[in-house]
Design a protein around this nucleic acid. Structure first.
Lengths: 340, 340
DNA sequence: TAGTCAATTGCATAGCTATGCAAAATTAAA
DNA sequence: TTTAATTTTGCATAGCTATGCAATTGACTA
């Protein structure tokens, strides 16, 4: 591929002129720029971003690591992130990983590319690597997960508050034998939701919920749901740590155990993914507003851009959500409409 | 961040030695390598991939452009692509775009990064840009879409063949007033499925199906389904150009019009996404096997890697699929099991 | 010990662009 | 037209690594 010097030769100018022709606001006359552009067009030249990045020390690339694209929530977030960061002139270098795996290898790889920032979703980071990122001045942003390391940014939903509201809601609706379906034991997300749920139940002087683990996956949730429902005295209310598992639980309850969601059993999720509002599910859930979360994550990325002396005290941002009541916890079914 | 020369100074060796220490199979003694590694560790050094890429002329980055991550099929493909290309030592630079938009701007941007290949899903490419990629020696691979441009690779499912089988299946099951819900008019995918469907119906001497457009989105499909079903004499069999739209159609049919899928109306999709097998839907569909498709796309990428004189005659690869019969087209419902 | 061969190392350069600085060209002012 | 003030241009260099080539070291043989 043609280089700037080739274009320069053809246009009869210096390589600097070519560079300036492609730089917004550089000191160059209209005439020269014009001549350069013609030559560039002719040779199919475009500036080599790699060389530019090498020189500037910024790649305009953000590394994104996520497990579990199966979960539509993450697909939605990725989509939004892509839009938002693209608008901010950043590209996304994406890695997917086996869910919840330690991803040091991939991240190490990303660091080789001198990414401007690192966004981690549903993923853990070793503290040694976190320190290295810190040292390299690369901001690390956890989305929907809290980093163990304090230097990292994080953007999460209101896990504990949401879980408390869900607990109250289930009790108010008259469900009595409750269960919590966890994701991963070492996920802050799952733990916080569990804590909020259990604490609030305790506060209401309700018995502690039965605990089971669905591993944030559909298969795991199906197994966990079966395990719960085939008991002699099964629970009549299940709070699943996310919508993805809640949908699976609804399917098992309805189609394997013949239960009517809402009436025979209450099921609640977390996230408010699109499918939660589909008439086939009508899942009660607590929202994690993707717009604000992504907006905040983008801010963190750009924050690191202008390395303005460690500003912004609050590194752990919590985005408020709200409880969406749907048929899956409604004793008397409401008319369903196919929305969205 | 520390550079190779810093490490060299600390280790008391030349910069070349540092480079060789990090290069597999380079000529360097174990002792020197050891010394370099210690110094590198101490300084937190890692080779700058940008410089390396600049020198080698290969970035080991593949550009991926996709519209419509809302469609779970693309999320699944992206996930698989990530795994597969990651194993081949390639990273993914991902762009999402408004569905079906011309994405010349983004692609132009990608080319600045000297990507090794370009994978386009659900996206069109202007022929001018295609020519530029060609000239730059960057292979362009369409996935689930055929390029208008002949130099490009493409990997698609058996759109026409699948659609033919679907036509036969619907007729065999006794559905009589058929409709086709298209995606976008200018999408090769949608067109081929439509053609196969119509041609086969004609061959069977059946009336031509009613046509409607769902724009490959849930909202579009909901509108299209309403349009179809609120007619005085609505169709009793609908083939939707993909599963994503078919699920929406099932929701509308069941919850807005009180129809029982399979019995009152047959609905068929295309792709066999995960949700198609969920007991809430049980959607009859034609598979697009993601494994083989991704494998093939990966081969095309690596093909371009060893630019071995324009081998491999066949650039347009068609991956066979199969018809999966489920309850959505079964006159007598089969027992449902929560699988997957 | 001298001589041969292989393994290892350093030097110098290429790969491409942005930018500070000084030189040149252009414009404005007198 | 001459001088001053601007604008535009080119030169040279930095940014970081990989690699061909020559020089050096080390091991081994006679």
């Amino acid at each position: 591929m043609a280089a700037a010097s080739d274009v320069a030769r053809l246009a009869g100018v210096s390589q600097s002129a070519v560079s300036r022709a492609f730089t917004e606001g550089a000191s160059i006359s209209a005439k020269t720029r014009q001549r350069v552009m013609v030559a560039a067009e002719q040779l199919g030249y475009r500036p080599n971003q790699l060389a530019r990045s090498l020189l500037k020390g910024r790649s305009n690339i953000v590394g994104v690591v996520l497990g579990n694209l199966q979960n539509p929530f993450f697909a939605e977030v990725l989509d939004a992130l892509s839009q938002s960061l693209s608008a901010a002139g950043q590209r996304l270098l994406v890695f997917t990983t086996a869910a919840n795996a330690e991803v040091d290898a991939q991240i190490n790889d990303l660091l080789h590319y001198r990414v401007d920032a690192l966004i981690l979703m549903s993923t853990t980071l070793s503290s040694s690597l976190a320190r290295q990122c810190q040292a390299a001045g690369i901001p690390v942003i956890f989305v929907n997960r809290t980093g163990q390391v304090k230097q990292c940014w994080s953007v999460t939903g209101d896990n504990e508050g949401g879980a408390r509201q869900i607990a109250r809601h289930l009790i108010e609706q008259g469900y009595q034998r409750l269960a919590f379906m966890a994701g991963f034991a070492d996920s802050s997300t799952s733990c916080e939701r569990q804590r909020g749920f259990c604490d609030e139940l305790a506060r209401l002087q309700q018995p502690a919920p039965q605990l089971v683990c669905g591993e944030f996956s559909r298969e795991g949730a199906i197994n966990a749901a079966r395990q719960l429902l085939q008991q002699a005295v099964p629970p009549d209310g299940i709070f699943c740590a996310n919508d993805h598992m809640a949908l699976a639980t609804l399917d098992v309850a309805r189609h394997e155990f013949g239960l009517t969601p809402g009436k025979d059993i209450g099921v609640v999720g977390f996230d408010d993914i699109q499918a939660a509002s589909w008439p086939a599910y009508q899942l009660t859930t607590f929202t994690q507003p993707i717009g604000p979360m992504v907006k905040r994550a983008t801010e963190c990325v750009l924050q690191g851009e202008s390395r303005s002396g460690e500003t912004s005290a609050v590194r752990q941002q919590l985005i408020a959500g709200e409880l969406i009541r749907r048929n899956s916890t409604s004793r008397k079914p409401v008319a369903t409409v196919a929305t969205n």
